[in-house]
Design a protein around this nucleic acid. Structure first.
Lengths: 197, 197
DNA sequence: ATCAGCATGTAAGGCGTTACATGATTCA
DNA sequence: TGAATCATGTAACGCCTTACATGCTGAT
């Protein structure tokens, strides 16, 4: 049942949208969801293998240049498609979908936040005020950049948010935009207070 | 140099304010900073022992009912104070303070956020809309409660924020208040959109 | 007398990162 | 030809949590 490894849910969730390789999954994680979740190959590939054994996902042939061939034709399960590349495309099984549903319906959640920025702020009294000001300015700059990226996502998604599938993505990105805007507001006020001594 | 174990910095930071036992440290972490950092005894005690060996902290006699006796009188270093309780009070050394300063001045930070709530939202399309609505409402309720607590902290700290020592605490708590208010705003808007279908 | 809170610690195990190892393909 | 990107995976190691083990103190 994929224990408590949240990475399993991330992968299962992504596969509920489309068939992906481990490499693709990494790209998806690094893309639109990176502001609230991260993952590395070192966790993705082992998770993929474990979930395949559990029957939550299966290897599939890639469907590029053809439609509807979600069946396995090669028992080595290495996709030979266009050339001879070793590429493993995964798709979610019914058991996998049930697993995601069960997780969604389970109301217990753990939001684990580790803000080193805030830690440094909290203990800022140990060093000079200038250090804290510098740290906040750097944080502000990072957020400003991320916010710009998120807003592009948000604008594009706003146009298609009537489609159920995109609404959830839109809401997630909006969460990022709202919180980042809050961060910037806080940065501004804090810098004012610190500069005033 | 306490490697990359962030818990070391949390402890060192707390000890830069006051002398504490491992048990006290746990309480401090669970208190005002729990919204951006967490820690358990299983990480606190080993960290304390490691840092003592590194000379970043030392065992101290508790100074209750007396002033200025920060010297060690008992080589067993178990504080025998009021009764015969085994209680180890730690204080930060100069090396420890330098360590915190070096960390504060190092501009690289890692803010590691794992929002299971957002993960569930992102993949909400797998289940019925009602599930997502329920999940958001639960998140909203949790945030509302935490915000109320934070606001009490903020109000109390606002009164003493002219004092340098308290300003940083005030700013940290304000960060929490600002972001939590943003969360609530987002919850409201999202629920509206989801209910509108 | 019992329970909550004070107080310290260890053991097992889970989760995850970094760095490494390997090799194909595509494009300049 | 060489660099970037695609693509999969392992090994070592680190950090942390959970659960357990132990025992004192103070209040009801």
């Amino acid at each position: 049942m994929a224990k408590d490894r949240k990475i399993d849910m991330v992968i299962l969730g992504l596969l509920s949208h489309e068939n992906l390789t481990g490499y693709d999954i990494k790209k998806r994680i690094d893309g639109g969801i990176s502001f609230f979740w991260k993952g590395s190959y070192g966790s993705i590939y082992p998770s993929l293998n474990a979930m395949e054994k559990e029957g939550l996902i299966i290897r599939t042939l890639s469907d590029n240049n053809s439609e509807a061939n979600n069946r396995i034709e090669d028992e080595k399960t290495k996709d030979k498609e266009t050339k001879g590349r070793a590429k493993i495309l995964y798709s979610i099984t019914d058991a996998g979908v049930e697993c995601v549903k069960a997780w969604l319906e389970d109301s217990k959640v753990t939001n684990d936040l580790k803000y080193e920025t805030l830690l440094k702020l909290f203990f800022g009294g140990v060093a000079e005020t200038e250090i804290t000001i510098k740290n906040i300015k750097e944080f502000e700059e990072d957020i400003r950049k991320s916010l710009a990226v998120l807003k592009v996502y948000q604008d594009n998604l706003a146009k298609v948010k009537d489609d159920k599938e995109h609404l959830y993505y839109y809401l997630t990105v909006s969460f990022g935009v709202t919180t980042y805007e809050g961060y910037l507001k806080w940065c501004e006020e804090s810098l004012k207070m610190l500069k005033a001594d």
